[in-house]
């Protein structure tokens, strides 16, 4: 086998056998995530066209987006990326599961906060502007794009709950560590997608 160890997020010297196993599983997960990014890419491409051509007399982006709410969502998700980073450190260097659980818990709360804020934002758009996805092509793709991200974040939270259960049952064994590493990649990549969403959807929409 090549001398390439699994790069990126890793367990380094703290748990060599699992580190070896990570090479295949984590790389596989990276590949799967790239397929997911391709999905988001085509969503963005469609959004780029329809947010310009697809208003169809409905509300335009600048009328319905809210800078402050978007900023809070962004900060919540950004903070959750950091807390997951701390959880990854605890996973790698601490034998004590408490720090890991605490940081994971914080990530969960921040993720849930993000979901709540985004749902509130949607509710505001619908109630104040009547901006449902059935109104125009632009709104259809807006909800599909942000909704797809939303579903991903929600799935991440579910995954965290499952991992909490596995931590409780199995402790920090190799399989649990591998799954947490994959969850970390998943979570950070959702943040990457959100960077693209707040830049190209919300901020671009608010700076016409």
């Amino acid at each position: 086998m090549s001398d390439v160890r699994h790069p990126g997020l890793n367990l380094g010297t703290t748990d060599s056998p699992v580190h070896d196993a990570a090479e295949e599983t984590v790389f596989g997960f990276w590949v799967l995530m790239m397929s997911d990014l391709a999905l988001f890419a085509v969503l963005f491409a469609t959004y780029a066209a329809m947010s310009v051509h697809g208003i169809a007399g409905g509300p335009a982006p600048v009328e319905i987006f809210d800078l402050k709410s978007t900023l809070w969502q962004t900060l919540a998700l950004l903070a959750s990326s950091f807390t997951f980073g701390m959880a990854a450190l605890a996973l790698k260097y601490d034998d004590d599961r408490r720090a890991l659980s605490l940081w994971l818990g914080a990530t969960f709360v921040l993720g849930a906060l993000f979901l709540g804020l985004e749902a509130r934002d949607w509710a505001r758009m619908v109630t104040e502007h009547g901006a449902t996805p059935q109104v125009s092509g632009f709104l259809s793709i807006f909800y599909l794009l942000t909704g797809t991200h939303f579903v991903h974040v929600a799935a991440g939270l579910l995954w965290m709950l499952v991992m909490a259960a596995q931590l409780a049952i199995f402790g920090l064994d190799g399989a649990v560590k591998l799954r947490l590493m994959r969850l970390a990649i998943y979570w950070h990549l959702l943040d990457v997608v959100w960077v693209a969403i707040f830049s190209f959807v919300f901020l671009s929409g608010l700076a016409p």
């Binding site: 160890r5 790069p7 990126g8 997020l9 950070h188 943040d191």
Partner: peptide
């Protein structure tokens, strides 16, 4: 800004850099 920030996410959070061992990813 978005591209720089995405690069920062990959670099600092996902630990992807130019080291030889990281080339697969």
């Amino acid at each position: 800004l978005a591209i720089v920030q995405i690069a920062a996410h990959f670099r600092f959070f996902l630990h992807i850099d130019l080291a030889r061992s990281h080339r697969d990813d």
